[in-house]
Computed example of a mutant assay.
Amino acid sequence: MYFKKLQRITVIGLLAVLVAGTSLGPAVSANPGPLHTNAKASALIDVESGRLLYSNNGDTSMRIASLTKIMTAIVAIDHGKLTDMVKTSKRAVGKEGSSIYLQLGEEMSLLNMLYGLMLRSGNDAATAIAEHVGGSEEGFVHLMNEKAAFLGLKHTQFKNPHGLDEEGHYSSANDLAKLTAYALKNDVFAEIVSTREKKVPNPHDKWAYSYTNKNKMLSMYEGADGVKTGYTKKALRCLVSSATRQGQQLAAVTINDRDDWLDHRKMLDWGFGNYPLHEIAAKGQLIAGYPLTVGQSFKYPLTEQESHDIRSRLVLYDANTLRYSLGERGLLEWYMKNDRIGAVPVYDVASGRLKLPTASPKAQQTLVDFKMAVKHDERGRLAGTISKIFDALFKY
């Protein structure tokens, strides 16, 4: 890449000198106190920025039980169609462990099967989803490992879509934190894992299936909105939780933790208390001294001390580059001491790029499919209610 102009701008407080109207906001703690859990491995991540706020034994590969299903769900959402009807095979019906009790040949929408996967941890649902989306369980596992490589999860390898103990099937606390931060940015995934109870059409009877979420954090912790429980005899208790407070979402991971509910409350409290999320730059803000504007918002969790260590650098592109021809004028990079923590594109003040949607076409289509699947269920419930009324009227 060629630069027409490279200029370092030292910013004091980041406020008046570079980005007009930016405020770091109040910080809470200058020096975070120690954090201890009972877990063999643990991690805490800020979802917006992807910054790991805490890690203990975080890069050690371990058995992860049903935390596997976080990857199963996001791969199914990314590669599948939520309105598709998934047919239950003999292999899925016979899967051991936790189950939503699918029957051989039973059909359920992919969306509803994902609710059964994430709320009730159904291993039968995991297998049926894998066979439908991947063509086979093995094909789907290939997609899972492909996604892990794409996300840079270097201490992760999948052998199955459900998380039952198997040699060579593992992940780490840090990798699971990164995976969860990625998954929670998907609106459909976030909606599913935050649901406390879901009614699903029952093809065998007039009453609906009712899936109650096993994640107790949803009722135990203010702002909790996910994610997944897990347990096997070898992995022991595993948990990924998330919570949102004052616009900041954190995700906590523990592996092999006998007191995970308490530890997750401590971890989330520690994160919110010590690393509040700061809006360092907002989309559309002007860059002082230049006819340029910030192309997207940039937020980052910082302690009080760290908020004084942020510096920026403006890099302007050569007019002959492809990025310039596509409307980008440069990058606004942010550093904490000497480590780059993020970057956002900059555009001309009147650039049409500022009006483009942030969601990808695939993400937009997934939301459309989600709404269609929900409406289909609502129509089915209405028809079922009408049928019950007629049955009652003509019973005698």
Rank of each mutant, 00 (worst) to 15 (best):
A16H: 11
A16Y: 12
V17R: 12
L18I: 11
L18C: 09
A20G: 14
G21R: 11
T22M: 07
T22E: 08
L24C: 05
L24S: 04
G25M: 07
P26C: 11
P26M: 13
A27E: 10
A27R: 10
S29M: 13
N31M: 15
N31P: 14
P32M: 08
P32Q: 07
P32H: 08
P32D: 08
G33M: 12
P34Y: 11
P34R: 11
L35T: 05
H36N: 14
H36T: 13
T37R: 15
N38R: 14
K40T: 11
A41D: 12
S42T: 12
L44M: 10
L44E: 08
I45R: 13
D46E: 10
V47P: 01
S49V: 06
S49M: 08
G50K: 07
G50F: 06
L52W: 12
L52H: 12
L53M: 12
Y54F: 10
S55D: 09
S55F: 06
S55C: 09
S55A: 10
N56S: 14
G58T: 14
T60P: 12
T60C: 15
T60I: 15
R63N: 13
I64R: 03
I64E: 02
S66R: 01
T68V: 03
K69W: 01
I70R: 09
I70T: 07
T72L: 02
T72P: 04
A73P: 05
I74R: 02
V75K: 06
A76M: 01
A76T: 02
A76D: 03
A76P: 06
I77Q: 00
I77P: 04
I77H: 02
I77E: 01
D78H: 06
H79F: 02
K81F: 08
K81R: 09
L82I: 03
T83Y: 07
T83K: 06
T83A: 07
D84Q: 00
M85L: 11
M85C: 08
A92L: 00
G94L: 01
G94H: 02
E96H: 01
G97Q: 00
G97W: 00
G97A: 02
S98H: 04
S98A: 00
S98K: 00
I100V: 09
Y101C: 03
Y101Q: 03
L102T: 03
L102D: 00
L102I: 02
